[in-house]
C-alpha cells in the first residue's frame, strides 16, 4: 500500500533529481562533450577535469565571486534589512503594516526574470538611468553600473529580492516572543538597542541561524537573476559558479568539466544541507 501511494512521487524525484546527482559524479570523470568525438564515446579521464578546474584559476575565481555574492547579498544585505523590516513591522501601533509588508514582499513574489528586467532600467547607464537620476540629486556623476561595478550591482539586486524571505522568517520568530519579556526589559530601563542585543536576538537565534543556512544554500545557486543582467560579464566579473557551470557546459560544450564543477558546488551545498536538516529538528 505504502509503495503504491508513495512510489510514483519517489520515482519521479529519483529519476530527475537524485539520478542526475549520481550521473554528475560519473560525467565529471569523463571527457564528455556536446559535439565531436566526446559526444558519442566519452572516455574515462579520472580526475583530469578536477585538476583542470583547480589549476585554471577561472573556477577558483567563480567560487570567490560566489562567496562574495553570498556574504554581501545574503548574509549581510538580506539578513540586516530583513531583520530591520521585521523589527519595525512587529512594533505595536504601526499603521498600514499590510501595505508596507506587501511592498517588501513584491520583489520576492515576481518571477526572477521580471525582477532582473526591472533593474535593467534602474541600473541603466547615462544621465537617464533611474539610479543615476537619484544620485544626480546629490551631485554624483552618472555611472555605468553594470560595467563599472557589476558585482555590487547584482549584490544589490539579490539583496533587494531576498529581504522579504528574511522578513517573513524573523517576523514569525519575533511574534513568538512573549510580549511580557520585551516589556520587562523595557521597564528595567533597557534601550531599543539593548533590548535587541540582549533579549530579541538571543531569543530568535534558532530561526536566524536556519535563515542564514537556507539563504546561503539558495544564493549559491542563483542563476537567472544574474544571467539575465550580465550573462557573467563584463569579461568574467560576475561569473559566479552557477554561471560558470552553464557557460562551460552549454556555450563551450565541455559537459565533463561542467559536471565536475557541478559536483564541487553540490558537495558544498550538501554539507550545508545536512547541517540544515539536523538543525531544523522538525517533527516527523
Amino acid at each position: 500500500m505504502v509503495a503504491a501511494l508513495l512510489g510514483p512521487a519517489l520515482v519521479l524525484v529519483a529519476a530527475f533529481v537524485v539520478a542526475p546527482v549520481g550521473y554528475a559524479l560519473w560525467l565529471s570523470l569523463t571527457n564528455k562533450t556536446l559535439t565531436g568525438f566526446g559526444a558519442q564515446t566519452p572516455k574515462f579521464v579520472g580526475l583530469a577535469n578536477y585538476r583542470q578546474l583547480l589549476t585554471s584559476g577561472d573556477f577558483g575565481h567563480s567560487l570567490r565571486l560566489t562567496a562574495e555574492f553570498i556574504v554581501f547579498s545574503a548574509i549581510l544585505g538580506q539578513f540586516l534589512l530583513g531583520l530591520l523590516a521585521a523589527l519595525l513591522l512587529t512594533q505595536t501601533g504601526i499603521r498600514l503594516k499590510g501595505v508596507f509588508g506587501g511592498a517588501i514582499l513584491l520583489p520576492m513574489v515576481v518571477p526572477e526574470v521580471v525582477a532582473s528586467l526591472a533593474w535593467a532600467s534602474m541600473l541603466a547607464p547615462g544621465t537617464l538611468g533611474t539610479l543615476n537620476r537619484g544620485f544626480a540629486t546629490v551631485g554624483v556623476d552618472p555611472v555605468s553600473w553594470l560595467q563599472r561595478y557589476p558585482m555590487a550591482a547584482i549584490i544589490i539586486v539579490n539583496t533587494w529580492r531576498g529581504i522579504a524571505f528574511a522578513m517573513i522568517m524573523f517576523q514569525a520568530a519575533i511574534e513568538g516572543i512573549s510580549r511580557e519579556v520585551l516589556e520587562a526589559a523595557r521597564i528595567d530601563g533597557a534601550g531599543v538597542w539593548q533590548v535587541l542585543r540582549h533579549v530579541t536576538l538571543p531569543l530568535i537565534r534558532g530561526p536566524v541561524f536556519l535563515f542564514l543556512l537556507l539563504t546561503t544554500i539558495t544564493t549559491s545557486s542563483v542563476f537567472g537573476l544574474v544571467y539575465f543582467l550580465t550573462q557573467g560579464g563584463p569579461g568574467q566579473q560576475t561569473q559566479v559558479t552557477s554561471i560558470y557551470i552553464y557557460q562551460h557546459s552549454f556555450r563551450f560544450f565541455q559537459l565533463g568539466l561542467g559536471s565536475a564543477a557541478s559536483v564541487i558546488l553540490l558537495g558544498i551545498v550538501l554539507v550545508l544541507g545536512v547541517t540544515y536538516v539536523r538543525l531544523a529538528r522538525v517533527e516527523v
Partner: peptide
C-alpha cells in the same frame, strides 16, 4: 508507520536543497 519512514522524511528534506544549477548538465543528457 513503515520501516525507514523517518530517514525517508529527512532524505526528502535534503533533496530539497539540491540546487537545480548543479544537476542541470546531467539532467540534460538524461
Amino acid at each position: 508507520r513503515f520501516f525507514g519512514r523517518r530517514t525517508l522524511m529527512f532524505a526528502i528534506l535534503l533533496v530539497r536543497v539540491v540546487p537545480p544549477t548543479a544537476t542541470i548538465v546531467p539532467l540534460y543528457i538524461i
